[in-house]
Design a binder for these strands. Structure first.
Length: 415
DNA sequence: TCTGGGGTCCTAGGACCC
DNA sequence: TCTGGGGTCCTAGGACCC
């Protein structure tokens, strides 16, 4: 028996950061056709999102802002309006949930919807008509313009959305997947980036057509079993993916590119502590703890190095994270002591609080106590109420030192 | 014109255990 | 005294996405 084909939509906000910047600043950015969001004239940023008018000049997102301004000197540069982006993203999601509970946010400005089984509920309405109603509701209730792609798989819906832009709807009917895929180059397929595309090109594989002409066995012989099976399916518009409304974070990270390279160990240590403060607060807000801490440095020459360490018992306080991170930073600096342009810290091996009661029993040394965690939550509340700098990390760390919990602050190299 | 910030997944080698 | 294979965990790096 044949299963009914799935009805999947991808809802994608058009130039999302540009729309948000205009909503955040209606009198300034709101009146600019030529608008770049992200980076500054002087700084090292890149364009996060470029308005459609600037794209006519060859501007693309990901391009250094300086380069974009060279192409389009009249453009206005606006910062990424973080708060507005978060609010509108959540608002769009709420509208989508009115149409189906199966909503999977794929990024801040995209979400997959699975409408399989809603035919009767919507009285046999076509997927295209449902998509148009979603589009109209989102615009009316959030002021955000979206495009929608639809099809029988996530990959088809995703590619269809790019044909729908801007402000359109594009549905690939069941049975039309292969002919739709033939319109594309392999590099258009999500997951085929510049490196894979270049290596496929060496085998004469450029368009989806080139892959459709091959049987799976020959394809596997050329590019390997794993990649062969993967590409064979994608070229036909097939992926194994389901629309999964439950998101579990795998990692959390904070990083920062400096306005000028930093070569001083104590300055780097201070930046690391600032990032850990932000990371720690996010972890606690999320109700998760981490077993693995990774410190990352990007050197002046853009080489990126990282060092990580896994502890037996998951941690969540700034002081404990710093205790793990500090030696990692020292090691990276010792290995290659050249100026750094970026420092980052990430937490992975995340566990929810309920999962972790068994783990700490045999840990040789406690990195944080229940009391530490309570204090750090109180600190979060104070920060929320009185602003980011009300209480510094030193307060907690000094206390640890007084009580002999940490040995890491022996060196006179901080602040 | 020098290259953001936040993520996910995969690979590969070595340690360690059975 | 030498020789296995399998499984899991940790670490480092890289491709890729928005």
């Amino acid at each position: 028996m044949e299963r009914p084909s799935r009805r999947i939509l991808l809802v994608d906000c058009d130039q999302f950061f540009v729309q948000c910047a205009r909503l955040a600043d209606p009198e300034g950015a709101g009146k600019q056709d030529l608008l770049l969001v992200g980076g500054t004239k002087e700084g090292r940023g890149v364009v996060t999102s470029a308005s459609y008018a600037t794209r006519a000049f060859g501007v693309r997102s990901g391009m250094p802002t300086g380069q974009a301004l060279a192409l389009c000197p009249q453009a206005m540069v606006a910062p990424v309006p973080g708060r507005v982006c978060g609010e509108r993203s959540a608002a769009v999601r709420e509208v989508l949930k009115r149409f189906t509970p199966v909503v999977e946010p794929a990024s801040i400005d995209e979400a997959y919807l699975d409408l399989t089984g809603t035919e009767r509920l919507y009285h046999g309405e076509s997927l295209a008509d449902t998509a148009k109603r979603i589009q109209a509701d989102v615009l009316r209730d959030t002021e955000i313009q979206v495009s929608l792609g639809g099809g029988t798989s996530k990959i088809v819906a995703k590619l269809a959305a790019s044909w729908a832009k801007p402000a359109g709807v594009f549905i690939v009917e069941p049975g039309e997947e292969e002919s739709f895929m033939r319109r594309h180059e392999l590099a258009d397929i999500p997951g085929v980036g510049p490196v894979s595309a270049a290596s496929l090109r060496r085998y004469g594989l450029v368009r989806v057509d080139d892959v459709l002409a091959m049987d799976e066995a020959s394809l596997k012989q050329v590019i390997g079993d794993r990649h062969g099976a993967w590409l064979h399916a994608r070229a036909r518009g097939l992926d194994g993916g389901h629309v999964d409304p439950v998101h579990v974070a795998r990692s959390m990270s904070r990083d920062e590119t400096f306005s000028h390279d930093i070569d001083d160990d104590s300055t780097l240590a201070r930046e690391l502590r600032r990032l850990i403060r932000r990371l720690g607060q996010s972890l606690r807000e999320d109700g998760t703890r981490a077993r693995t801490i990774t410190v990352r440095l990007r050197d002046r020459d853009f080489r990126t190095r990282q060092a990580s360490f896994t502890v037996a018992e998951p941690i969540e306080t700034d002081a404990a994270i710093y205790e793990v991170a500090r030696p990692l930073l020292l090691r990276l600096r010792k290995d290659r002591p050249i100026p750094a342009r970026l420092i980052g810290v990430s937490a992975s091996n995340l566990m929810e609080k309920q999962e972790q009661s068994q783990l700490g029993l045999f840990a040789e040394k406690k990195l944080e106590s229940d009391r530490d965690r309570t204090i750090s939550r109180v600190t979060d509340e104070l920060r929320d109420r009185f602003g980011g700098n009300a209480i510094g990390p030193a307060d907690l760390m000094d206390r640890r030192e007084r009580e002999g919990l940490g040995g890491w602050r022996k060196r006179e190299d901080e602040e």
